[in-house]
Structure formats: structure tokens, C-alpha cells
């Protein structure tokens, strides 16, 4: 029951023969060895596996890889500049101590990147609502909210 899947991940075309039951997140982590995308639950609640598919935040544990056939996927590994400079959203997380153990962080950043596109100057409440699909057990969200507000503004300013 193998299938061939092709997509673009972080700008690079990739393709592979997979078991059809391979989740997108498994493809990303195990086959591409991009382990920055994490798995924190099995009910699509925690959001640690969030990536961008065609620019939109999705949970990569909630679809099989074949559902991303032909898609453009961005993972946390593709966010910083090639020279290693952090993206403004990543920098905002660092400056505002928006992460502790780092496990939920890639999902938080990916969701925030998408959210900020439509919310260049969000309120705290808008950010909290946008995080409904991302669980963090370390930060109490306080500094994540601060980070995303600052990151969204920085992204808008950089335009």
C-alpha cells in the first residue's frame, strides 16, 4: 500500500515512496529528518506539529502525507534566513522569553507567522484566541502573547 508523494518543503522539492498511512508529520520528521516539528498529542489538540501548508497554519499530525501532495510546506527549519539570522517572529520570542522547554515553540512560531500576516498589530486577546490550537505547559502563555504581539508588529514594520 505504498504511494509516491511529492511536495516542496522549505523551498526544496522532495518526493518519496511511502506507506499510504504515513502522516505528514511522520514524513517530515522521520523521512526528511526535519525534527523541529514535534508531536505532543494524538488528538490534534496541542499544535506542536504546526507547519504552514501553502502559507496556512495546519497541524501536520492531522493529515496523511498524501493530502499534502503538490503542496508548499514550510517548517520551523525554513523560517530563519539562510545565514542563520532569526526571522522577526523568532527574534520576538527570544527577546520576550516566549519559550522555555522549547517543545511547543516551533508550532507556536509557525502559527504566529500565519496569524501575523492578517493581524499586523494584534491585541492580546486576538493573540490568545489565535492560540486556541496550541498548548504550552511551561510559559503560562504570558510571554508567548507578548512575543507574538511584538513579532507581528516587527513583521509589519519590516514590510
Amino acid at each position: 500500500m505504498s504511494v509516491k508523494v511529492s511536495m516542496k518543503v522549505n523551498g526544496q522539492p522532495v518526493s518519496a515512496e511511502l506507506e499510504s498511512r504515513t502522516l505528514l508529520v511522520t514524513f517530515i520528521r522521520e523521512h526528511l529528518r526535519l525534527t523541529g516539528t514535534h508531536v505532543g498529542c494524538d488528538t490534534a489538540q496541542c499544535g506542536a506539529c504546526t507547519v504552514l501548508m501553502n502559507g496556512k497554519a495546519i497541524k501536520s499530525c492531522s493529515i496523511v502525507a498524501m493530502q499534502a501532495e503538490g503542496a508548499d510546506i514550510l517548517t520551523i527549519e525554513g523560517v530563519a534566513k539562510p545565514d542563520g539570522t532569526l526571522h522577526p517572529m523568532q527574534a520576538a520570542f527570544k527577546e520576550n522569553h516566549g519559550l522555555q522547554c522549547g517543545f511547543c515553540t516551533p508550532g507556536m512560531v509557525m502559527n504566529a507567522l500565519d496569524f501575523a500576516k492578517s493581524h499586523p498589530n494584534p491585541t492580546d486577546q486576538e493573540v490568545r484566541e489565535a492560540l486556541e490550537g496550541n498548548l504550552c505547559r511551561c510559559t503560562g502563555y504570558h510571554n508567548i502573547v507578548k512575543s507574538i504581539v511584538a513579532g507581528a508588529r516587527a513583521m509589519a514594520a519590516a514590510k
Binding site: 490534534a44 499544535g47 504546526t50 501548508m53 496556512k56 497554519a57 495546519i58 497541524k59 492531522s62 493529515i63 502559527n111 500565519d114 496569524f115 489565535a130 486556541e132 490550537g133 496550541n134
Partner: peptide, 9 residues
């Protein structure tokens, strides 16, 4: 419905 990631799919 759900959350924003779920709503995208």
C-alpha cells in the same frame, strides 16, 4: 470551529 489550524483544513 476547532482552532485556526483545524479551520484551515
Amino acid at each position: 470551529i476547532g482552532d485556526r489550524q483545524v479551520r484551515h483544513l
